[in-house]
Simulated assay, not measured.
Amino acid sequence: MAYQNLISELKENILYVTINREKALNALNKDTLAELADVIAYAGKTDQVRGVILTGGGEKAFVAGADIKEFSDYSGKQGEDLAKLGHDQVFNAIENSSKPFVAAINGFALGGGLELAMACHMRVASDHAKLGLPEVTLGLIPGYGGTQRLTQLVGKGKAIEMITTANMITASAAETIGLVNYVVPQSDLMSKAEEILNLVKQRAPLAVSAAIKAVNTAVNNKNGYLTEIEEFGKCFETADFKEGVAAFVEKRKPNFQGK
């Protein structure tokens, strides 16, 4: 698929996805969401992709929110459908992907932008980034999992404060409350995201996928312990497990094949 709003490039088993609407502060419109859905599906089914870095074009914004003009006259049913479609094809698709997604937050991450970052498995922010969920200033609430994922990441009290005040917080404050994993200078943002995925690339792909599934189950009101037990057992049937044990015994680096 030829993308109009994204730049997608696969290098050394890392898929780099840049939302390329810099003049619009990379706001999420329907076309951009459709393209994101396509590239997420591609990442999931392509063995050469071992991880994804998601970022925004330019240095001002990761994603400054959704394109409000597109849904300003929606009915309640249209609003509900909009949220469900985004959940299924983009936000939940990222969270449930077998490949780890790292959000490289290069500026404002507001509304749908912060919700997109929170759907990723890990977040690295530049030191000038600002994060927030301003939806209540529009008479809305966060519509792409914002109320759920923010609560999971920072706890109920802080989540309610951020959502109901609509205040932005700094990257350093976001790191303090666990909203982002790391804060780095803008010049180091991509290299830090790469550093994380380069470590993940050394691990067994099927085990990485199983771990993501088990952790997701733990935070989504399901029996995470049962999922962990099942996924742990499945790992014993993989060639990667046999290779990992052999490499440990032979005191060498493992050569995982994702099988």
Rank of each mutant, 00 (worst) to 15 (best):
I19A: 05
Q202C: 09
I141Q: 08
V17Y: 03
F62V: 12
N167T: 04
G146H: 04
E135T: 00
V215F: 09
Q257Y: 09
K242T: 13
Y42A: 03
A43W: 07
K45L: 08
A218R: 09
G79Y: 11
R50H: 11
Y225R: 04
A109F: 07
L36T: 03
P100M: 08
L110D: 01
G178N: 06
V245F: 13
I141F: 05
H87W: 11
N181S: 14
F101A: 02
N29S: 10
M190R: 09
G44S: 10
L6E: 08
L25M: 12
N221E: 15
K69S: 14
S209N: 08
E175D: 05
L28A: 05
K234H: 10
F62Y: 10
K77L: 15
Y16W: 10
C235M: 15
K253C: 11
E250C: 00
A171T: 07
A104D: 10
G139E: 10
Q89F: 11
M1F: 02
E194R: 02
V136Q: 07
H128D: 13
V49N: 03
Y3I: 13
E161R: 05
V219M: 00
A37G: 13
L28M: 10
E12T: 05
G112N: 10
L150M: 07
K11A: 13
E70L: 05
A24L: 15
T165R: 03
V63C: 14
A83M: 15
N5A: 09
V90W: 01
K253R: 14
A239N: 15
L206I: 07
K60C: 02
N20S: 14
V49F: 02
M190C: 00
L114A: 09
D81I: 06
L206Q: 11
L189E: 11
S191W: 08
N26M: 02
E161P: 00
N20L: 09
E195V: 00
E135M: 04
V124A: 04
N29W: 08
L85R: 12
G258C: 06
A210I: 03
V63A: 13
L54D: 12
N92F: 13
F101M: 02
I177T: 04
L179H: 01
L138P: 00
N221H: 13
F101E: 04
